[in-house]
Simulated assay, not measured.
Amino acid sequence: MFNLERLRTLDALARHGSVSGAAEGLHVTTSAVSQQMAKLEREVGQQLLARNGRGVRLTDAGRLLAEHAARILSQVELAQSDLEARRGQVAGELRLGAFPTAARGLFPAALSRLRSGHPGLKVTTVEMEPASGVRAVLRGDVDLALVLDWYNKPLPVPEGLTRSPILDDPADVAMPAGHPHADRGEVDLEDFADDDWVTWGEAEFCDEWLLDTLRSKGVEPRIAHRAGEHATQLALVAAGLGVCVAPRLGRGPLPVGVRTVPVRQAVRRHVYAVWRADADRRPSIRAAADALRAAGEGLG
């Protein structure tokens, strides 16, 4: 009979494409991955890995067994979900991922709610960008991830995942206090056609959204600065170095010298929780989604 941990290691190797990637995804050392694979090869009596330059690749036998491993692990996940659902208890371990502003804006209240309501549940969290969160759920590295899309730019969610809405997050334009539009009640994005922009990292989902949206309004944005963290973007705005789109979730107090003005045609991010469909019946997943929605409602 196959050892599940060894099959899980093989599955991680197939998904990540490298020993180091599998080790990171499984939260073990590369040596542990190599040892598990050596034991699995002895168990099946066939070579599953072959050298490929400085790395490794799966042999034909390795790919065949990896396909079976993925199905076996999915069935194990379903069995665990059914048993949890039958027991009806929110307990065990749950791994959550979220993009930074959701981690800051939703995790503290949601995790406190889970701890007080379900003391038998152990929750661990990690920050990750939306696309990485989707991949992590697919790979099984996290059980649930918070991801986002924009009102006019949906985030593709692959088959096999369940998506559940958590909240809509309005966004404003942040500008220096001395900007000509700082005292207005509303603005349009195209009002800032002549301004320098502070945006996200190049080719990130939110950066692509901003460029596409401005160009759809006939504006070719002048990108002056890029920063992944909203706090850094706002610090650059406070220094008079440009304007930026500032979502409200996890934003915190504004730096001195920064004003935010709502956009006339509301600019919103949609925040979702995603998890594997074969884990859909796990009470812990449902409890986490409920706690995250309650945390979002508390922001209003």
Results as ranks from 00 to 15, higher is better:
E190Y: 03
P170H: 10
F192H: 05
L155S: 11
V123C: 04
P158D: 11
P180N: 07
L106P: 01
L144P: 02
P176S: 10
D169A: 11
L144T: 06
D194A: 15
V90L: 10
F99D: 08
V187D: 03
E93D: 13
A103Y: 07
R95D: 06
S116Y: 03
A174Y: 01
W150A: 12
L155A: 06
G185S: 11
A85I: 01
D143T: 01
K153L: 14
V147A: 04
V173W: 00
P108T: 08
A85W: 09
D169C: 09
R135M: 03
F192Y: 06
V137S: 04
K153C: 05
R95H: 15
A177H: 01
G105R: 02
A103I: 13
R139N: 11
D188Y: 10
D188R: 15
A174T: 04
K153H: 11
P165Q: 07
L167P: 03
D183R: 13
P154C: 06
D143V: 08
V90E: 02
G185N: 12
V157S: 02
F192R: 05
V90D: 07
R104E: 14
L148S: 10
F192P: 03
G105F: 07
S112Y: 04
V147F: 06
V123H: 01
K122L: 13
L148F: 13
V142S: 08
L94D: 01
T125S: 06
L144M: 14
R135K: 13
V126H: 05
P158L: 06
G178L: 06
A136K: 05
P170D: 13
L94F: 09
D183L: 14
L114F: 10
G97L: 09
F107L: 12
P158K: 09
R163H: 01
A177F: 02
A174F: 06
R86C: 09
E93C: 08
P119M: 09
R139A: 15
P165H: 11
N152R: 15
L96R: 07
S116E: 13
R184A: 09
D143E: 12
W150P: 00
Y151L: 10
L114H: 06
V123M: 04
L94S: 03
D143P: 10
L148C: 11
V187F: 00
G117Y: 07
Q89E: 15
E186D: 05
P156A: 13
L121T: 01
R163K: 11
P108V: 02
H118L: 11
T125I: 10
P156S: 12
D194R: 14
P180R: 14
